[in-house]
Amino acid sequence: MNRLFYLFTLPWVAGFAGFTAFPLGYAFWLSLTNTDALAPESRFVGAANYAEVLDDGLAGEALVRTLVFTAVTVPASVAGGLLFAVLLQLPVRGRSLYRAVLFLPAVVPPVAGALTFGALFDRDTGAVNVLLERFGVAGPGWTDGPRLPFVIGVLVLWGLGNLMMVSLAALADVPRDLFDAARVDGAGPLRTFTSVTLPLVSPVLLFQVVTGVIAGLQTYLPALVLGSAGAGGSLAALPEGGYFFMAHVYTRYAVAGRFGYASALLWALFVVTLLCAALMLRTTRRHVFTLTSPGGARP
């Protein structure tokens, strides 16, 4: 049995060693220096970069903003994905068309999606404000200030097709006879959903929430694309509302060239992510049907 475990997991373990462990070790090494990776000499600075992280006001603000954004968008998109998946399990006419349409945004290239939303919500020329004006409302600037997280949030929800797909696959895995049994017991659709469907797909939902939070804490691309046009397309100077933690990291890294410091920031994010994940797994332990040890049964 031991041998089999190693056999099956060997490719992943090898990939982990080469593509994760080595780069991580390297980045940790960088984080102990003041290197910009271009200057011919750099110095070992010990924990100075980490001390600076704790003292970095911009990083703190960005982290809070990111946590709030994640706490709102992740549950919303997981719930949305599940809702659509459940509806599309029903024998509705044209459901494969609906499925395709709802999934479609998930495959729009991220840059194009962000640009589209940027154009939609543009203060002077965007469709949203042009329509608002028809109704006599003076449209605000959506992408240049505190309203940017709203636009990014809508963009994230728009792309919930991936979650819907995973939920669809999970629902497909629920044995049919359980639904029949529930119906025989006289349970209505809502009752069936809460007492049969939800518990059975709860491991996948938890999985989606945890991975969603992990990804959410790393959100930066839409903010970068939506927010950065103002500075001549450069990464500099993101609007405050889009200044997520990864955007901070990214600008330290690609704008300031502070490879050492940016690596320290990333390690800090890693610790925060770890804490969030641990918290979620701990608090849900009792409620999730099987997030489980091998074999499907909890010890």
């Binding site: 271009l38 110095r43 070992f44 600075v45 100075a48």
Partner: peptide
């Protein structure tokens, strides 16, 4: 504990 380490000669690109 000093946060700033000393200069390491030859610690180059």
């Amino acid at each position: 504990m000093g946060l700033y380490g000393g200069y390491v000669p030859g610690f180059s690109r």
